[in-house]
Design a binder for these strands. Structure first.
Lengths: 297, 297
DNA sequence: CAGGTTCTGTGCATGAATGCACAGAATGAT
DNA sequence: ATCATTCTGTGCATTCATGCACAGAACCTG
């Protein structure tokens, strides 16, 4: 088997010989293959030498296949057909909105995006949708996730395709009970008199966490949580003032916006896919759907 | 069709991906293919990018094929099988002493070699043997002939495989009737008193013709013929003295050797084949047969 | 017959593919 | 926990495949 394999250690030479056998001249085969005719003749020379077998009778105006060349013509045609069918199947799969789809996002985006994804899945019943809430950067190239929805600076990992979902206003919110007890926020100079909810001090991954760290005394951070969802839960429970996207806060009638949103708080949201699957209909469909349906009214 | 073809414009990448899918690691595939693992990963990267489709899940300890990768595994296995069978058929044909065999030689060698070739053909009834007597240099690479039997200096055409059949003594012969009428050849100093048979004056391709041209007065060349066979016919008919190989002349009891053979008259005979077919059993068989059976006893 | 066109075949320069060397990740053994 | 082994992934240097430019052969047209 291995000894036989050595005869055909270059499948591209077979492809070239097949085209010459099919078309009859070096020039035509070269045009079909998109290479120079010198390349074609060299492939034929190499293949014939390796096989120790003449594949063609050579004439000034083209090549005619020998019996061996005709045999190779048949095998080459079958191979090309098989590859074309494989290509069609792969494209067919890629043209479907079906199969598994793993979406990863920060927990803070879940209350907003999970219902949207649910509607998408209802529209495509063949889709097996998985939503993973994870701070950790799931590896798109490892297939741990197919779509990552990220906030903050534009992701720059190589081999990733990044698309902006939108830039969303963020502001400081508190529960009305908190406001009744501690009062409103008169201005940004009065931050120290209030209690705040933030992320872990050691991390401060989010630009908003860093903003709080720079503008609020440490003694005024009343509550720290590793997950954004826990942070928003604390705000909703009246523990303190914290950042939320305006449209997420709008879902809660008991939340009060403490100050107008600053432009620097605006947060871009990115849809990230791996280039190897970006072109599939599935990925195009989910990206388009999120762009159309995750906007804030 | 052409659009589909573009997906698989590099059949060697498919071969590489097939080996990875089959063996599970880049290293194993690289070893099997005889390339570096860097080459393997680059072929996979290129193919996945071109297809826009993940073929593998990538892990630190190897690759597992996706559904698409498994599809490619099946197609690759079928392709490899088809190519292996093609290889077997070509080798099988090459292992047979059958089909067409065209042998070309000078006419002067025909009385000696044609019977030998006839015996060879009788031993291989599936062989379609053609003997072409031609001064013109038939193109081995064009398939006009498969085996050329040539005399004189060693042929040097590229892509030809040349094998010495033997070096044969040549001498000057005349018919006994000629000797009865004109006497014997006392020495090489008495050449002018005799009549000779030679090739065309304008050609003098053969070293023997040139020897005559240099050592015999032109008036003593009684008979010129373009074909060596015609020349030997004239000698046999008693027209004059002419060169023949000793073993060919020995077939004619009426021919008399006029002088001992000179070493410079010795003539090497070469078997010439084209490298593309040289290794086939057919060519090996005919070359071996001629070496064994065309010797002079 | 002469000239134009199409095609093959080859030496040399260029560009692309490949191998080398290294580093990092993951796993297993001690 | 540390070290060794296996494997993947990448930048750079080297090698090899390819394209360019040219010439020759064969055929067709005027």
């Amino acid at each position: 088997m291995n000894a036989q394999n050595d005869d055909f250690e270059n499948w591209d030479e077979i492809r070239t010989a097949y085209q010459v056998a099919r078309l009859g001249t070096l020039s035509a085969a070269a045009a079909q293959l998109g290479v120079h005719h010198a390349t074609v003749i060299r492939h034929i020379d190499a293949l014939e030498a390796r096989l120790g077998c003449k594949l063609f009778q050579r004439h000034a105006r083209g090549y005619t296949p020998t019996e061996a060349g005709q045999d190779l013509l048949k095998v080459g045609a079958a191979t090309e057909d098989q590859f074309a069918q494989l290509s069609g199947r792969l494209r067919g799969k890629g043209a479907e909105v079906s199969g598994e789809l793993i979406v990863t996002m920060l927990s803070g985006l879940s209350p907003w995006l999970t219902p949207v994804l649910g509607v998408f899945q209802a529209q495509h019943p063949d889709l097996r949708l998985t939503v993973m809430l994870d701070e950790r950067l799931l590896r798109l190239e490892y297939g741990e996730a197919h779509l990552a929805i990220r906030a903050g600076p534009k992701p720059t990992e190589p081999d990733n395709i990044v698309r902006l979902l939108g830039t969303f206003p963020v502001s400081l919110f508190a529960h009305r009970d908190y406001v009744a007890r501690y009062g409103t926020l008169k201005s940004l100079e009065g931050l120290a008199a209030h209690r705040f909810v933030s992320g872990l001090k050691t991390a401060q991954r989010s630009p908003l966490d860093r903003w709080l760290g720079q503008n609020v005394p440490e003694d005024s951070i009343a509550f720290r949580a590793s997950e954004p969802r826990s942070q928003s839960d604390a705000v909703i429970a009246g523990v303190g003032i914290g950042f939320l996207m305006s449209h997420i806060a709008a879902v809660h009638p008991d939340l009060v916006m403490m100050t107008d949103p600053l432009p620097e708080w605006q947060t871009p949201i990115w849809l990230v896919t791996h280039m190897a699957i970006h072109r599939t209909a599935k990925m195009q469909a989910i990206s388009g759907f999120l762009s159309d349906n995750a906007s804030v009214n």
